[in-house]
Nucleic acid binder design. Structure first.
Lengths: 349, 349
DNA sequence: CTGTTAGCGCTTTCAG
DNA sequence: CTGAAAGCGCTAACAG
């Protein structure tokens, strides 16, 4: 019923091996033969059987991309960039590789499950994006799995995630600490001394690094770091909205808020506005990431731009072996402070 | 080197067939035997070979999701919802299915390429999201490919895309025409008579339907439809920015602009603001889709909410055969007019 | 440059 | 409920 490579071979009057060679283009074949084969392929409307060739070749054309949440542009932008680099020549069977996007929802269990599934598929490479949960048993389990994957020949790249020790994984880590520090320094430079902080979820590398940067800046400027001015939440708008209200309840005299990311910052802005406060007149707000919508916010958001697309593209190239990994297997990707309308000098108390 | 099912069988002292049955859980196996097998699997740290089982079973655990641009939340939200429904019980080998996300960039050629690649992988199902390019040769080529896929046992579902004739594909189509009509009616009801329209790319089903809805509303109200008040662009912020400027150049007395989608609307708002116009004081603006950031825009965006997540989830369930397809294989998903701050009565001329 | 020959690792009748 | 055996469709040496 379904046409196989043998059918093509019969029609082109060559051996199956020759057809395979033509299709994979990784072996010299006479032009005339190639043409005959291609013609037969076309006439028979033949489509290679992926699983069969993956089995025989012991490797597939699949590349796994692990993300927390593909609906979040932070991950969507990276996934898109990775995808754009995994196609092209160099691979098997025409060089087209498929991206398997796995939504972990930030759960280490699901992360592990997906890694196993990708291992099962004999994925050519796996890219893990975004921060990781800092939880010993799970972190070790993930590291062990990554080790297994690399041993099996799957290239593993971390994009925007802190390096995993004892793993051959290449890491492109965002400088979350440095970015957060710059951001808070900017606010302190403006004159702010009562800064609220809406941090991300606990036990998360990104959260911890951004928080550390924030605190470094406070400490360096001799500004008191009242723990009551920090609230933890998720990386979404709603968390920002609620956390801003909570922060205001705890200290109505806050003059600035740094948020876990841009979505959180926008949620916070909404809460502040509804509380009758003007941004930045009454209170400054800053985000992180510089997602596309942040520049269109009113006022436009002061934030730290992370080169998501560039990092994703690079991760994709490294995953495909088309770019040299950074020395030591680890590169730090810096963010850039974007000072915009949502931050200003504090109101006079 | 790599442990196979035969190794597990040897260690558990059963036949390979039994191990396979335990792993796939689709056949009765004595509890004690199952336990022994599972123990061996665990001890050997065995991972099934996906390609091998796909080859033998003639079907894989992959589900293709075609999107224009995964970095755009419009697609990210649908992809995420589809993904969340394709896992769970019912499938082979533990029921975990992987989502292969394919970024077509709106190109029919890439769409076709990806469909072939998915066919090659023997994908269990394919979901095509978003509008399609209306271009005869390509439309027919895609339809032919979809027919091939369904014939080969791949379930094909269209999510947010107009039905393809002569195809067994199930379609969940957004009522773009009706939504656009409602939106324009809302503006006309407010008193607007000089409406600009920033439409999406030409030769695109979504663009055409939204434009038709807009024109129906104009015609029904007896408002002149000056072709110079319509500009085509892409579905992104930048297009909105530039198109708004162009529209203003052509007719500075416009009192409202309906945009192709929310991103375009936000870009338009930015352009208007920079031109010294206030929204909605001087000019009203409306979007389409109601993406998460639209409610946080200032002013918040009047738009048509499309139930992206719900539609995606349903498409995912139908793709997995876990939900009955709609009667006739086609369902229309309606949008809901969300009247917010960006639309108001026109200024007195 | 091309053909022959073995498998790749799993599923699935068909017996028992 | 379990085992034996026959492929699934392709690739990769190895010869020629």
């Amino acid at each position: 019923m379904t046409v196989t490579l043998a059918d093509v071979a019969a029609r082109a009057q060559v051996s199956p091996a020759t057809v395979s060679r033509v299709l994979n283009g990784n072996y010299p074949v006479a032009a005339s033969t190639r043409e005959r084969v291609l013609k037969a392929v076309d006439e028979l409307d033949y489509v290679l059987n992926g699983p069969a060739s993956a089995l025989a070749a012991a490797t597939s054309d699949l590349v796994g991309i692990l993300v927390n949440d593909i609906a979040d542009p932070f991950f969507g932008i990276m996934a898109s960039a990775i995808q754009s680099e995994i196609g092209g020549p160099g691979g098997r069977a025409g060089g087209e590789r498929l991206a398997v996007v796995c939504n972990t929802g930030g759960s280490p269990e699901r992360e592990l499950t997906y890694l196993t599934l990708l291992q099962r598929q004999r994925a050519a490479a796996v890219v893990l994006t975004g921060g990781a949960v800092e939880n010993e048993p799970h972190a070790e389990a993930v590291a062990a799995k990554l080790r297994k994957l690399t041993e099996a020949g799957t290239r593993v790249v971390l994009c925007g995630r802190a390096p995993t020790p004892d793993t051959r994984a290449i890491a492109l880590a965002f400088d979350n600490r440095g970015g957060a520090r710059q951001l808070t320094e900017h606010l302190i430079g403006l004159g702010h001394r009562r800064l609220g902080c809406i941090a991300g979820p606990r036990e998360h590398t990104t959260t911890r690094h951004r928080l550390e940067g924030h605190r470094e800046a406070l400490a360096a400027a001799g500004v008191e770091d009242d723990p009551r001015r920090t609230v933890h939440g998720h990386y979404d708008r709603r968390s920002g909205y609620e956390a801003a209200l909570e922060l205001l309840r705890r200290d109505p005299d806050l003059t600035a808020i740094v948020a876990a990311n841009d979505s959180v910052a926008l949620g916070a802005c909404a809460a502040l506005r509804e509380s009758g406060l003007r941004v930045p007149g009454d209170i400054s707000v800053a985000g992180f990431d510089d997602l596309p919508f942040s520049i269109d916010a009113v006022p436009s958001l002061t934030t730290v731009r992370l080169p998501l697309a560039e990092a994703g593209a690079r991760a994709g190239r490294i995953a495909m072996g088309r770019e040299e990994p950074p020395p030591g297997g680890i590169a730090t990707v810096r963010g850039e402070l974007m000072v915009r309308g949502s931050s200003g000098v504090p109101r006079v108390q």
